[in-house]
């Protein structure tokens, strides 16, 4: 029942994504693709932080694991795209087991610190082993080739958007099922009071590791989708700033909600480019112009957090309550 509904929503979203992709310009298809891979990472992170109450500052590094796995498999070993996406998810989930076992013993700032170290340290491996990982230069893969049945002139950007949106839909169905099922309930119990959860028979340690593994797998898939879209895996893409912006994304979108992850992904892609456009539409000196987008981005973030402390999804929910109240239940409001 739940699964069927999630699937129905996913199909509806898939149709929306399809309609979008055929009507958008190539560059906006690229943005759609970016939103989709951000959604995958944010959805995974929101399960971890929003449902189980654990925090991770290391998700950017987990994305790097997925990205490098798929880049190496595709460019060196000639794997096809889909197996590489699956392998990147699995490999990153395995790394997630390691991090998760550690994280199950840590809480709050200690957990944040441990995952932070992971985020800072891991990209350095690329510089340490330049022959395997290409150093600062990174690894490049060839653009994904659309099936010939789609026509010879099928735009690359649309195909990239489809790949990333496909990943996002799979993630949505899996995570929505997980969040609404037994695991989700146990995770929420764990988040609200781990002692009570333990007394109720929840295996706290195992569940924490499981949450981390699921979350890491999503980050890995997001990293692999990122490579499919940008054709590059380089340490510059997976700096600490990425981990922090992922965290920003889930808070901005609304913690613990997959819809929140969708809003968060849209915000992460659109806000910087809008603020960039604003900065460039004003004729300013070079130094100011180069730094203004960041300032605008910061101001908007502060504004959104102040106006909608529960994130954009909280705002949507509040609005929909108001609208629903007006439309369907006027008597309740007067009461």
């Amino acid at each position: 029942m739940t699964f069927a509904r999630n699937l129905a929503i996913a199909v509806a979203l898939g149709v929306a994504a399809y309609l979008l992709s055929i009507s958008l310009s190539p560059f906006d298809n690229l943005r759609l693709a970016s939103m989709a891979y951000y959604f995958v990472a944010l959805a995974g992170l929101t399960v971890l932080t929003g449902l189980s109450g654990q925090i991770s500052l290391g998700h950017g590094a987990l994305m790097a694991v997925g990205a490098y796995t798929s880049a190496i498999l595709i460019s060196r070993d000639g794997w096809a795209l889909v197996p590489a996406l699956v392998a990147a998810t699995v490999v990153t989930a395995l790394v997630g087991v390691l991090v998760g076992v550690v994280s199950a013993r840590l809480r709050g700032p200690y957990l944040a610190g441990a995952t932070l170290a992971f985020a800072v340290g891991l990209p350095g491996l690329a510089d340490k082993y330049p022959h395997a990982f290409g150093g600062e230069n990174g690894l490049t893969v060839n653009p994904p080739i659309a099936p010939t049945s789609l026509g010879a002139n099928f735009p690359l950007e649309r195909w990239e958007a489809w790949i990333a949106c496909g990943c996002a839909l799979v993630t949505f169905v899996v995570l929505a099922g997980l969040a609404r099922g037994r695991v989700g309930r146990s995770l929420r119990a764990l988040r609200d009071d781990d002692v009570a959860a333990q007394l109720a028979g929840v295996d706290v340690g195992r569940l924490r590791v499981l949450a981390f593994v699921v979350s890491a797998g999503c980050a890995g898939l997001a990293g692999a989708a990122f490579v499919a879209v940008t054709q590059i895996a380089a340490p510059g893409a997976f700096q600490l700033a990425l981990s922090l912006s992922l965290l920003t994304g889930i808070v901005l979108g609304g913690l613990g909600s997959l819809w929140g992850a969708l809003w968060g992904a849209a915000a992460l892609v659109l806000l910087p480019s809008w603020s960039d456009d604003i900065a460039h539409s004003l004729s300013l000196s070079g130094d100011v112009q180069a730094n203004l987008p960041l300032a605008i981005y910061g101001v908007v973030l502060i504004g959104v957090i102040m106006a909608a402390p529960t994130g954009l999804q909280g705002l949507v929910r509040r609005l929909s309550h108001v609208v629903r109240g007006r439309l369907f239940k006027p008597e309740e409001e007067s009461a």
């Binding site: 929503i9 509806a12 979203l13 929306a16 994504a17 979008l20 009507s23 958008l24 906006d28 819809w259 969708l262 809003w263 849209a266 659109l270 949507v316 929910r317 609005l319 929909s320 609208v323 629903r324």
Partner: peptide, 15 residues
């Protein structure tokens, strides 16, 4: 339904 509708609206606005 309202959520799905608003999501779709958001996507179309983006388009």
């Amino acid at each position: 339904t309202a959520l799905v509708a608003s999501a779709a609206a958001g996507l179309v606005a983006f388009a």
